[in-house]
């Protein structure tokens, strides 16, 4: 326990990085994923094909490879994020952090797209037919009738995607962002005799975070449930 208590500020900072990675890439992946889902169900076949190619490619690539691409390979072709360098107190968001956020976003967006598409598939056929029958165009059908219901139906799969994202932020720790995983590894090196306590503390925080997320998701689902 001492290992964690003595370094409490470092541990808190590590989890702040974890949460920042999660929140920023969570929001960005929702935006990108929704756009991809719109392309995937839209009437333009070229874009449909492109979106489904994106999903297939990204879904079948390990997250680590995606992150290695943005973190290690992309700078070789001049794709770096050196223009980002923000400091809030002890928290510094630099190019490594941004590369990991981009990687996590690109990866998670594919799953968000699938979650939303499954939500769209859950909307009953009659809804879209009725919307068309009263003369709404594609954008209107989507905006007024299908998407509001689809978003409700995709809350559970979206929640599980976001929970997975929270757990996936640890991969950024293997590539240089000093978040929870990297901090746990360095504490393990410094306090070799207290490995079990260190692991249990970090694991416990993750369990709590996951439970909080799924609690919120449950409440949202119940609140927005279609009668």
């Amino acid at each position: 326990m001492d290992a964690v208590l003595d370094n409490l500020d470092a541990v808190v900072r590590a989890f702040t990085y974890t949460l920042l990675l999660f929140l920023i890439s969570g929001v960005l992946s929702l935006v990108l994923g929704t756009a991809l889902a719109a392309l995937r169900v839209g009437p333009v076949s070229v874009l449909r094909l492109a979106a489904s190619a994106y999903v297939t490619i990204v879904r079948n690539t390990p997250l680590l490879i995606v992150l290695i691409f943005f973190r290690i390979a992309a700078p070789k072709i001049g794709l770096n994020f050196n223009f980002v360098d923000v400091q809030f107190g002890d928290i510094r968001l630099n190019n490594l952090f941004t590369a990991c956020v981009v990687g996590l976003t690109v990866y998670t967006a594919a799953f968000v797209c699938e979650a939303i598409r499954s939500g769209i598939n859950a909307v009953q056929l009659g809804q879209a037919e009725a919307a068309r029958a009263i003369g709404l165009p594609f954008a209107g059908v989507m905006r007024e009738v299908v998407l509001p219901q689809a978003f409700r139906a995709s809350v559970p799969p979206l929640a599980s995607v976001q929970i997975a994202l929270l757990k996936n932020t640890t991969v950024a720790g293997a590539l240089g962002v000093f978040e929870a995983f990297a901090r746990m590894r360095s504490l393990n090196n410094d306090y070799a005799t207290q490995r079990i306590e260190i692991f249990l503390v970090f694991a416990f925080v993750f369990v709590v975070l996951v439970e909080v997320l799924s609690f919120i998701a449950n409440r949202l689902e119940r609140r927005w449930r279609i009668a």
Partner: peptide, 14 residues
């Protein structure tokens, strides 16, 4: 059902 009880309606393993 998904992690922590949020009932999944789809197979979404990541």
């Amino acid at each position: 059902s998904q992690v922590g009880g949020a009932d999944g309606r789809d197979r979404m393993h990541i």
